[in-house]
Design a protein around this nucleic acid. Structure first.
Length: 220
DNA sequence: CTTTCGATATTCT
DNA sequence: GAATATCGAAAGC
């Protein structure tokens, strides 16, 4: 059952993003365990692709929770988001880092023979490459209804906790979970990359979390 | 170790 | 024409 997952994704990304840590995404011969995400929220977030309204590229970001939003970054890399929040709000979580837990050979065939296990899905562009994301066939597909190329499964134990306590207490607990780190987003320019939007979430100590690289002047 | 730079789709000025 | 939710190779300390 994925009822708990849908209940969490009903919340905007800055609230629901921590719940994606430790979750797995399976499809196209590879399974990854998510270790790093960034949340974006169009209505109030100048760093979001959806902040200035719908365009042909970002329209899937406005879709229903559980939609996969894929986009081309710097003209080269394919990056992947999981849409959350009410339909029409342009909110989603960018998958920035993950551990390949199954299909390592398949992922390496896509990324290159010399890429180490840790590097396979470390960083958003690399992650998209490892799972074989393709704009034309994956952008706008669902990761929750079982009919798309990918299926998202919550971290072990989370479904049971949601069933017992409800989604709100679970998300409130994740917001202060000492096992989850949060900080400014990577690569986002201007004030949107500063501490005013501490919407990068990761699992401390995981080697597959990408290195924090400052882009331009992120306001602290 | 750190910094620079090229590749290049999409969007905004 | 310039900027961007990037990456990796090359060059400079």
């Amino acid at each position: 059952m994925t009822g708990g997952l849908l209940a969490l994704l009903a919340e905007p990304a800055p609230v629901s993003a921590p719940a994606l840590l430790g979750a797995t995404l399976t499809g196209k011969g590879v399974t990854i365990r998510i270790t790093e995400v960034e949340a974006y929220f169009g209505p109030t977030d100048p760093g979001s692709h959806g902040h200035r309204g719908m365009t042909p590229r970002n329209r899937q970001l406005f879709g229903p929770p559980g939609t996969l939003y894929a986009y081309r970054s710097y003209g080269i890399h394919t990056c992947v988001n999981v849409v959350s929040g009410p339909e029409g709000t342009s909110s989603g979580s960018l998958l920035r880092g993950a551990e390949v837990v199954d299909g390592v050979a398949v992922a390496r065939a896509r990324r290159g023979a010399s890429v180490t296990d840790v590097q396979l899905a470390r960083g958003p562009g690399n992650l998209g490459g490892a799972i074989g994301a393709v704009l034309g066939e994956d952008d706008g597909s669902s990761v929750v209804d079982g009919r798309g190329p990918y299926v998202l499964t919550l971290a072990p134990g989370l479904e049971a906790r949601i069933a017992a306590d409800g989604p709100a207490p679970v998300l409130a607990g994740l917001a202060t979970d000492p096992g989850i780190a949060r900080g400014p987003r990577t690569g986002v320019a201007g004030i949107a990359g500063g501490t005013a939007f501490p919407w990068r979430f990761w699992l401390p100590g995981e080697p597959t979390v990408s290195a924090y690289r400052r882009h331009k002047a992120a306001v602290d």
